[in-house]
Design a protein around this nucleic acid. Sequence first.
DNA 1: CCCCATTACGTAGCACGTAACAATG
DNA 2: CATTGTTACGTGCTACGTAATGGGG
Lengths: 324, 324
Amino acid sequence: MKLQQLRYIWEVAHHDLNVSATAQSLFTSQPGISKQIRLLEDELDIEIFTRSGKHLTNVTPAGEAIIKLSGEILGQVANIKRIAQEYNKEERGELRIACTAQLNRDTLPGLIARFSVAYPEVVLSLYEGTPSEIEGWLIDGEVDLAISNEDIGFTPDVVRIPCASWQRALLLPKGHPLTEIEVVTLKALSEYPLITYSFDAPRGSDLTKAFKKQGHEANIVFTATDAQVIGNYVEQGIGIGIITAMPVEVANHGTLEVISLKSLLPACMTYICASKKLFLRTYMYAFIELTAPHLTQGVVERVFAKRGKAQIENSLMTAEINVQ
Amino acid sequence: MKLQQLRYIWEVAHHDLNVSATAQSLFTSQPGISKQIRLLEDELDIEIFTRSGKHLTNVTPAGEAIIKLSGEILGQVANIKRIAQEYNKEERGELRIACTAQLNRDTLPGLIARFSVAYPEVVLSLYEGTPSEIEGWLIDGEVDLAISNEDIGFTPDVVRIPCASWQRALLLPKGHPLTEIEVVTLKALSEYPLITYSFDAPRGSDLTKAFKKQGHEANIVFTATDAQVIGNYVEQGIGIGIITAMPVEVANHGTLEVISLKSLLPACMTYICASKKLFLRTYMYAFIELTAPHLTQGVVERVFAKRGKAQIENSLMTAEINVQ
DNA sequence: CCCCATTACGTAGCACGTAACAATG
DNA sequence: CATTGTTACGTGCTACGTAATGGGG
């Protein structure tokens, strides 16, 4: 059994069982992969993939389990490399970050700018996806850190640390009826078409959940990835916007009005997540600390040392800083 | 990076940094290992071992971390092989069991006899050691299952399942003063020299703890590995014996008397343990079930699926059967 | 002076690439 | 017929073993 063989079966399984495509992405030849997989199957005396003629059609149950373990092994091999680099005081390294579209526009650019000044030799890769996709990438070890503002990190092997919370706000055209009301209610909001962020959280957006909880239905007619776009459509009269009160300003000052929904909707939490098995390099701790100043290396190390997610949440909710 | 290189550094670290001895135990040449370690160190650009002249003298901090990860990787590789054999419906396999001396004499022979009738093709290895040693073997993956009657399994990655509890009993020469007393107390026991099992539990024997709890001191003058030997020395008048009321009979019927200590000392619990990361083959489940009939594959699977030791203890203490 | 790790060197094996082949849709 | 996996084959690398070398205790 060779590490490459494990890598090959893992990669093929993650390339829709297409060996040719896998070979291309690994910059090697297709027969090489084919042969190594065959050799591994011979050695283990088991079929990992089912074949129909000249096509890989499926993964056997045994293959399923073996590919999963292979993924963990490859992750630990990557950790060994990280450890070596870290003790070697290498400034170089790699940092793969996943985030949602919203954060990608509003929050990350600033973070990344500051990070890459401090660590110019770290190669940054940024992946944008839905919370579900992000969670999958974390589990598969395809990204190192993830930042999300919807619920994420329910898998036991993913550590989730709350790093900031944002109040929501209502974005209205000037003179809209709701600007006249003293106290805006969910019931009132449910009577207007809403524009908010695109989401695809594995357990549903907490916005829709908040409406449901009071027996109303959020009538979301349009979603966009960032506040600016939402503002534009509010201006067009498509609906009223619900955004997070992020530090970035919406440019449409003249024609729009912002009303805080602090008492009406739950705060929107931003989480930073990583696989519990990841060996964290110094620059990774540094990046986490950039997202929230109280998340020092010591704090994060303690979170990772703990088992059981409940403990983690408790220990951090108290330390959490509420950024408005 | 090759799997063999990881194996080599792990084995060398577990052979007192003696490369020659490691080579012998792996049936390979010493220069081969030496070279591969060097190659790995070159590739990672880091020292794993410190050398003074021609001797390996120490493990570097980085080496420490890398060797630990290597151990986990090798364990998962072993799991892949187990998975392959299992799905291949192989009857063959390997089962390495660790146990304490006491269980090795009194309990295991019967278990193993029954097991090897059911699974004649499984190669059994039995390792006898102190609870501390046993725990180390489990963590290092040098044994698959462990059975211990002292406290063990405090490491987070070790699953501990109670499988039987035994009452303790007093072994006295006929006509001994204690046979006249209606109710034996710890205070009374503390006034006689005691003979009991050898132990080396990581947190101390629960026998001595029981005495301490009531402010007395157990005056243990002699320890032996099994009840038979203890009986012989009780017969010699060296002291009075404290044994577990195991199903095996002490042969010295004529000259000795047995008094139950059920109400005086806590029951002695026997645990079966395994690394949480171990892939359990069918015959391993079968062996566990032999130790306690209520530990069916389904029950054990559920225990392994859970995280956090607290949950495990709770779920099982209730299901536990009290064998007298 | 013994033990031990490293260096030197030769060989057998194997991973990988190119090219031809076969099967699927 | 285009795409994809397998077989065939040649080559260059490398893991491993034997033998020789050198450093410590």
